[in-house]
Design a protein around this nucleic acid. Structure first.
Lengths: 349, 349
DNA sequence: ATCACTTATGGGAGCGCTCCCACCGGTAGT
DNA sequence: ACTACCGGTGGGAGCGCTCCCATAAGTGAT
């Protein structure tokens, strides 16, 4: 195990000054080496690096933050109310992606929950008090005031999942429309003719995109749009059940369903079973998210996979780039990123 | 929204000194008020508090950390390799619990991944360099050197899931044995007679506890232990499938199975279906973890729920208590906590 | 009134860095 | 030979706090 340079709490940690003394140079020079400044001769740099290694020097984060007026930390803000509803791998995947991208940057990952008014107040204070150099916002509602506030405070912020086509914040999103289009095209290719869709709440931009993708796939196949095959739900299991019942009532001839989330697909699947419809023989079923549920449904559910971990990574990179850009008063290289989805075909279709 | 006292980046934040001037007192007095020292008169305290409110003062974390040689942060360490295998709600539940407990303490929650050698090295440095006042360890292997290292460094540490009955670290665990016992007692109460178990890797302490619980339930019912009903697996779905096949070969009369994880139960369920055994009619099935899988199996799986969020909360409280205790050179009030589980009965049993 | 103590308060020193300016010697241009 | 410049370097100042010592003011016993 890595114990070189580690010492119990009592033993004071080496400081810049001590490293400087050891290397026979000044404090400023060591600082320059540590921070990768180019204005250091090769020989000096080598000497300093040797001293750093010998002493097991690690910069004191607090001192650095105080002197440089930075935090060396990125805050990941999770609306507390949401955590329970995440399609399950979502949260850990995002976090893993963010963590991976940050680990090379020397930035810490701060986790914060924005829940009730109290946490929100605290959060606003944290951020106002320079406690994070950048903020990553996960799954915010369209009417959340937080993004606005962060913009006003001038804190670099990246949001996952655009709130509209004209998202003002830096953003990372998956290609919801294209994912949906691919899923429906797949059903068409399987020879299905009466393809219905169960949507999420349409005031959620991603849900609207998925509906668009569904329509586009049908249009590309020359099918006229048919509203009796579209059922609006709310991303919940119960919503999926109810939507499927309505669909079955209205269009008993339905032979395929594209649900805008796996959870709703699970609900729909229950209704189908209750109605004696076999999956995929009578009705093919496709979901969205490729969550754990999809794997374990019976039959396993065909679903659209979003590259969640990649999205996390991209968010971190975007915020880092924005911080760097602002440091030189430049515009960020890119304002948004849309990552491709992937259709995972299983037995349900 | 809470904007009082929030100002854009440019506008400097008020400092202690400014608050002091405003309140007509000295710097030290303001510091005392902020830190809740009792050695301040009521009148002075009120004046300072008013000034704080008017100026929207928030202490500068970095300055505080530097001066007091603390970090005001707790690190949650997640072995990267593990994240994928978490029974899914696990990770987000732990994090939510920890976050809730920490939010009142003024401590930040730092998320760190201990993955390959590189991250591990970095992590050790972080911690050695005083970047966290306490560490929360989640799902570490029995042979992980990290707990040892933290003990040497003298950093307050709490582990989730004891590694043995004699866990030296502060720990929080769920009552694995009792959970298993309850599950098996439930199967006995349902009139099952040939109750098998599929275990996890027995070098994992929790898995061993669950096996103990299984045996204890049978013993309490006066059943002789029968090794032909115990199959050792490894917490994976494939392991569950294989174990169930072996069980069916060896004991075709089996009429109930207690699997030490939902994932293994899911594997077992597949084998049972392939073998034409109905659940629960022919074979009753019970899992452990009450993960998303359990909800969505067909039929829904009876499972033992662990209070994951409570465990997260308890871990945070334990580490906070330990930090406080060490500050006055005392022993922590409690070294370990074992939280009760709950049997969630569904259609599979 | 005097002393011994307690309580409340002010402010110096210093935490370990970064920033920046002054300075050094060498090189090139005139 | 003189000036101008430039890469390389040292070290002072200061970031905003906590800690602690000195001091002032108040209290009760002698």
């Amino acid at each position: 195990m890595v114990t070189r340079g580690l010492r119990p709490r009592g033993g004071k940690l080496p400081t810049l000054e001590e490293v400087a003394a050891r290397a026979g140079v000044g404090r400023g020079t060591v600082s320059r080496v540590i921070n990768g400044s180019p204005r250091v001769s090769a020989a000096t740099r080598a000497a300093v690096e040797a001293a750093v290694a010998e002493l097991g020097y690690v910069p004191n984060r607090a001192a650095r933050a105080l002197a440089a007026n930075r935090a060396d930390a990125i805050a990941l803000v999770v609306p507390e109310s949401e955590t329970r509803f995440f399609a399950e791998p979502y949260f850990s995947d995002i976090v893993r992606g963010v963590g991976a991208a940050l680990s090379d940057s020397g930035m810490q990952l701060l986790l914060t929950f924005a829940g009730g008014e109290r946490e929100r107040r605290r959060l606003a204070q944290y951020l106002a008090a320079h406690r994070a150099d950048g903020v990553l916002l996960v799954s915010v509602h369209a009417d959340d005031p937080l993004p606005e506030l962060l913009t006003q405070l001038g804190i670099p912020t990246v949001i996952s999942g655009r709130r509209s086509a004209a998202e003002p914040l830096l953003s990372v999103d998956s290609d919801n429309a294209e994912g949906a289009r691919t899923a429906v095209a797949h059903l068409l290719a399987r020879g299905r003719t009466a393809i219905a869709t169960i949507t999420g709440r349409l005031d959620v931009y991603g849900a609207a995109c998925r509906l668009d993708g569904y329509r586009r796939a049908l249009a590309e196949a020359g099918r006229a749009p048919d509203d009796s095959l579209t059922e609006i739900a709310d991303f919940t299991e119960e919503g999926g059940r109810r939507a499927m019942r309505d669909l079955l009532d209205r269009r008993p001839d339905v032979d395929a369903v594209f649900a805008a989330s796996d959870v709703m697909a699970a609900g729909a699947r229950q209704t189908l079973r209750a109605a004696g419809r076999r999956v995929p023989d009578d009705v093919a079923l496709v979901g969205f998210d490729d969550s754990a549920i999809a794997h374990h449904m019976d039959p396993p559910l065909t679903s659209v996979r979003q590259p969640i971990e990649d999205m996390g990574r991209a968010m971190a990179q975007l915020v880092l780039a924005d911080i760097a850009a602002r440091a030189e008063a430049a515009e960020p290289a890119r304002r948004s990123l849309v990552l491709p989805t992937e259709l995972v075909v299983r037995e349900s279709s």
